[in-house]
Deep mutational scan, measured.
Amino acid sequence: MLDDRARMEAAKKEKVEQILAEFQLQEEDLKKVMRRMQKEMDRGLRLETHEEASVKMLPTYVRSTPEGSEVGDFLSLDLGGTNFRVMLVKVGEGEEGQWSVKTKHQMYSIPEDAMTGTAEMLFDYISECISDFLDKHQMKHKKLPLGFTFSFPVRHEDIDKGILLNWTKGFKASGAEGNNVVGLLRDAIKRRGDFEMDVVAMVNDTVATMISCYYEDHQCEVGMIVGTGCNACYMEEMQNVELVEGDEGRMCVNTEWGAFGDSGELDEFLLEYDRLVDESSANPGQQLYEKLIGGKYMGELVRLVLLRLVDENLLFHGEASEQLRTRGAFETRFVSQVESDTGDRKQIYNILSTLGLRPSTTDCDIVRRACESVSTRAAHMCSAGLAGVINRMRESRSEDVMRITVGVDGSVYKLHPSFKERFHASVRRLTPSCEITFIESEEGSGRGAALVSAVACKKACMLGQ
């Protein structure tokens, strides 16, 4: 009897593995994704193909990295998701002549009506938060230079001027797309009239992360975010950046690689679950690469896999709870928690219980395998993109072996128990001629924006502006 049951459990697990095998990517698959990513990057950089390229390769006008001589107080704003952060950054000489960066910050959550109302409502709310922060720190009387981390696709015309191309991540505030974001912020500050600010720089969160990590390690020339969304930036040779005049030196390019796949480059790798996630998203047909990796989508992918296993009578005796059938019910943090389970399955059992399920031991094991399959594919897909960037940098610099540091931020990278190990191992397999160091950014977005502002202020002083 026991043997029969054991055989049935083994057969069930084997069927589960057959279904989950769809998520496995072979090294040849990853090399294919990497080569296609490089081709799209090239198209994004070139003037004649930029418009139709899915990977936009947006110039950021960040050319210099901090040298350690900029000092002063800077205000930093960070808008990239449902939370908005205001930070005071003091850049100065530390002990023994070292450079020191001290920060104080406060988080504000953005109400739904500000995210989806008008641009005026959104930026009025942001300036209200700045006003509140300055009151708390008794700094209303000071006109501070301000660095703005704005983590949406922007076409820069200068370091302090950028046109919002399109909202992502659930934002829909009308009247912002096609307009200068810094102008919208300046107008809102003017409307309030109770404080003055000098907006000197606007950067993407990947750029802010790279600059913040450069402060720790001067070989950091790539910034990457794996959180709600997924994106990367890197220092490109100016001669390859056709959208900006000049051939000397390097400029940081914001790849906006989340949109890779929007022209069909990933079609052969998309599964039924991916198509369902895409169809029910706020932007169907867009940001397809990001939807395979980002935390906004990972939990939902797992939920759809679990429903398939229920329908195949391989999980929960073929019956799903009402909660499990509800879109968004299986949160991405559950994926991390399930994979963090120590082996007694308590954590998995508790999560499934909150979803109205009474799982068996085998159910718990199957749910864990589903989570591992989805998150491992995410790590491997992400590795193909980064390997594409790094191999490109090595080739354009004609280096036999390139040493490089990548600064990384984002909740999936930082909080998932195995993502970074799987990701690092896969990147290294795909970049055999590179020695890569990964560092995690601390308060990256805010500190990085302030350091970019410090560079901009120093330049302005040198130019006598």
Rank of each mutant, 00 (worst) to 15 (best):
M37K: 01
T116H: 13
K13L: 13
L243F: 01
E248T: 06
E221V: 06
V310N: 01
P417F: 04
R308Q: 11
R186V: 07
M115I: 13
K414H: 13
Q38K: 07
G92R: 04
P66N: 05
R85P: 02
M107C: 07
E372K: 05
A114L: 13
K458G: 13
E48I: 15
G410T: 13
H141K: 03
M57A: 04
S109H: 05
E322A: 11
I439E: 09
A384I: 14
F148I: 07
G318T: 04
M139K: 11
Y234S: 01
E435T: 07
R428K: 12
E221R: 05
S151A: 10
Y234I: 04
L324M: 04
C382M: 07
E93Y: 09
G446W: 13
N204K: 13
S281V: 13
G162M: 10
E399L: 06
V154Q: 11
F260M: 08
G444M: 15
V203F: 04
F150W: 15
L134C: 13
M298I: 15
E221F: 06
S373I: 11
V89F: 09
S433N: 15
S353F: 03
V401R: 07
R7W: 14
E157C: 15
D194G: 10
D400H: 01
M251K: 00
G448A: 14
R7I: 15
K190D: 01
L304K: 04
D124G: 05
Q98C: 09
R303M: 01
I211V: 04
L45M: 03
E128L: 14
Q287F: 15
G294L: 10
G295V: 13
G385V: 13
Y297D: 13
A456W: 08
E95Q: 12
A449E: 07
K291G: 14
V406W: 00
I366F: 06
G464T: 13
K136F: 08
R447P: 13
K31S: 10
K142M: 09
M381A: 12
R46Y: 09
H424C: 14
I126Y: 15
A119H: 04
K56W: 03
D124S: 05
K142L: 11
L355P: 06
I189E: 07
R191W: 02
D217W: 01
L314C: 12
T82P: 12
P284V: 12
G261E: 03
M202W: 06
T118W: 11
K296V: 13
S280H: 15
Y297N: 05
C382D: 08
I159Y: 09
S263P: 02
D132K: 08
E245R: 00
H105D: 09
M251T: 13
F260L: 04
C220T: 12
V91I: 04
D160S: 11
L271E: 02
V55I: 08
V16L: 13
Y413R: 09
R429P: 14
K161M: 13
A425Q: 13
G92K: 10
S174A: 03
E177L: 09
I293R: 10
T376E: 06
H141F: 11
R325C: 12
Q106C: 09
G448R: 10
D113K: 12
F148L: 11
V182F: 14
I225V: 03
G183Y: 04
K459E: 11
Q18S: 14
V305A: 03
A450C: 13
K31F: 08
A329D: 13
V389R: 00
A173S: 06
S426M: 13
L288E: 15
L25F: 13
K346A: 05
C457N: 11
H416W: 15
D205W: 04
H416V: 10
G117H: 04
G464V: 11
S418L: 11
I110G: 06
A370G: 02
D267S: 06
S441V: 08
G343W: 01
E48R: 09
V101P: 03
H218P: 06
V408D: 01
K31C: 07
K291H: 09
L352Q: 01
T362Q: 04
C364N: 07
V374E: 01
G68Y: 03
V427E: 00
T376F: 05
M381V: 10
A232K: 01
N313A: 09
A21Y: 11
K459D: 05
H424N: 04
G264R: 05
V310E: 03
I163K: 12
K414A: 09
S353Q: 06
G44A: 06
D198M: 01
Q323I: 13
P145N: 01
W167F: 14
R403W: 04
Y214S: 07
S360D: 04
C252Y: 00
T326G: 09
W167N: 13
E196N: 01
T362Y: 09
L58K: 08
N204V: 10
T168P: 12
E322D: 10
G92E: 06
R43G: 01
V452Q: 04
T361C: 03
T376Y: 03
D187R: 04
P111M: 07
L357K: 05
E51W: 11
M393H: 11
F269H: 04
N179T: 03
S280A: 13
S398I: 06
A456P: 05
A454N: 12
L165V: 09
M41Y: 13
R63Y: 00
E312A: 12
N254Q: 08
C129H: 12
G464S: 12
S76V: 02
G448V: 08
E312F: 07
L304W: 04
V199Q: 11
G410S: 10
E128F: 12
Q219F: 15
C371I: 03
M251R: 00
H137M: 09
G183Q: 06
N204I: 04
F84W: 04
Q18Y: 12
A450K: 14
L164S: 14
L270G: 04
G117D: 13
A456D: 05
E242P: 05
A387H: 02
S336C: 15
G343S: 03
L355N: 01
D344G: 02
V181W: 09
T361P: 10
V253D: 00
D198P: 02
L2A: 09
K136Q: 09
V91Y: 09
G117A: 14
T405D: 01
A208W: 00
G328S: 09
R85W: 06
L357I: 04
G388F: 02
I19L: 11
C457Y: 11
N179W: 12
N313Q: 10
G80M: 15
V401D: 02
L144D: 08
F423L: 13
G328W: 07
G328D: 11
L2I: 09
E95I: 08
E440K: 03
T405K: 05
E14W: 15
D267M: 06
H156R: 11
V16A: 15
P59A: 03
D217M: 04
G68F: 06
R327E: 04
H380D: 14
V207H: 01
R392S: 08
D341G: 02
T206W: 03
A259K: 15
T361L: 06
E70K: 04
V244L: 09
M235A: 00
V200Y: 08
H50P: 01
N231M: 07
K346T: 11
R325G: 10
S212W: 05
I211R: 00
L88A: 07
A188G: 04
R369E: 04
P145L: 01
D205A: 14
E372M: 03
N204C: 10
M197R: 00
E268L: 05
S131V: 12
D78M: 04
Y108E: 11
T82Q: 00
F316E: 13
M402A: 10
T361G: 07
A188I: 02
T118Q: 10
T168D: 14
T326F: 10
D124W: 05
D113P: 15
D160W: 02
I19Y: 14
T376I: 03
E245M: 03
Q138V: 08
L309V: 03
V199A: 06
A379R: 03
F195E: 05
A11P: 15
A6F: 15
S321D: 07
G68M: 03
N283A: 14
S151N: 13
L58I: 12
I130F: 06
V91C: 07
Q219W: 05
D3L: 01
T60V: 00
C252A: 04
L243G: 02
C252E: 00
K90F: 03
L146D: 04
A188Q: 02
E9S: 15
I366G: 02
G407Y: 01
